[in-house]
């Protein structure tokens, strides 16, 4: 009787131990699987760097880096090929500058208004509307720039070509406004109420409080919003590919058609260049340039954003 009881206990103890061991193994396996999925992000970055650098190295063996940076022509598919990235950078720079000239003032005013002036109800209505606008696919914005904004501009600027940087830049600006306004608004709302109350107690108006207390206090967050806006403008592809034309053109004149780095990649990828040709490798060199520019802006933006988060 007592011996069977002892055997029972021994058996159940063995069961329990096996159960525990199983449970432990299962837990470890699950943790490993979850960690691997988190590591996909790291592999993606490594993959991007690997592909861009590998193909670009082949390109830079044929074209000296100095020519790439200093040549004033971009004619990679001609027999007399020139590879001056400056030509494409000028298009990217001009369209981004126009976009930011629209997006920064509009985005900032909207952010200050929504965060400091608007009632809760107004905010509840407008924030989703802005979010919906941010959800419109960029190809649709490109279509809008080409078939609506350009004809509209041609009424005011006679002789404006059908493809131009101005209309692409303006529409790109409208597209970026929601990004800038939402990040800046978050930064301003993170400013503690006590700062505003202190300012009101000194007799300041809402506008004075907003511009002299809240905006300076949220400055690093607002700056981060601008920088992320810049990085988005530089990387934007379809609006410029559709509305700004695809001829490389070394110009800072917004009424001219010009290709950006992104538009050039689309143009080459759309055609059928053989894998391994120099023309094929140019898009990776152009892509590497783009990746570096946006990486610098992104890191700057995230550094600024982290700083303002730590303040309060």
């Amino acid at each position: 009787m007592s011996s069977t009881a002892a055997a029972n206990t021994a058996e159940s103890a063995g069961n329990r131990m096996r159960y525990r061991a199983n449970r432990h193994v299962k837990e470890r396996v699950i943790e490993l699987v979850l960690m691997l999925s988190a590591l996909v992000a790291v592999f993606t970055t490594l993959g991007i760097v690997y592909v861009l650098v590998k193909e670009s190295l082949v390109f830079f063996r044929a074209v000296p880096l100095w020519d790439f940076l200093s040549d004033s022509q971009w004619t990679p598919l001609f027999t007399d090929a020139h590879f001056g990235i400056g030509v494409l950078l000028s298009g990217t720079l001009t369209s981004s500058a126009i976009a930011l000239a629209v997006a920064i003032p509009l985005g900032t005013v909207i952010a200050v208004y929504l965060s400091e002036f608007a009632s809760d109800r107004v905010r509840e209505i407008w924030k989703p509307v802005l979010e919906l606008l941010a959800g419109v696919p960029t190809i649709v914005f490109g279509y809008f720039a080409l078939f609506f904004v350009t004809p509209l501009l041609q009424r005011f600027i006679p002789g404006l070509p059908g493809f131009n940087l101005l209309s692409a830049g303006l529409v790109m600006g409208v597209m970026i406004v929601p990004y800038i306004s939402s990040i800046s608004e978050d930064a301003m709302r993170a400013v503690p109420m006590a700062l505003r109350e202190g300012s009101y107690a000194m007799g300041a108006t809402r506008l004075q409080t907003a511009l002299r207390v809240v905006v300076p206090a949220a400055f690093s967050g607002i700056a981060a919003a601008y920088i992320l806006g810049i990085s988005r403008a530089v990387g934007e592809t379809m609006i410029v590919a559709v509305a700004a034309g695809m001829q490389p053109n070394l110009t800072l004149d917004p009424t001219q058609p010009a290709a950006t780095i992104t538009a050039y990649i689309v143009q080459v990828a759309k055609g059928d260049l053989p894998h391994g040709s120099l023309g094929y490798q140019t898009i990776f060199a152009a892509g590497l340039t783009l990746f570096m520019v946006t990486l610098i802006f992104n890191l700057l933006g995230f550094w600024l954003r982290r700083r303002y988060r730590e303040v309060y």
Binding site: I48, R232, G235, T262, L290, F291
Partner: peptide
């Protein structure tokens, strides 16, 4: 923050 076209190149 990486531009979408860079994913295309990847």
């Amino acid at each position: 923050g990486v531009p979408s076209i860079v994913y295309g190149l990847l």
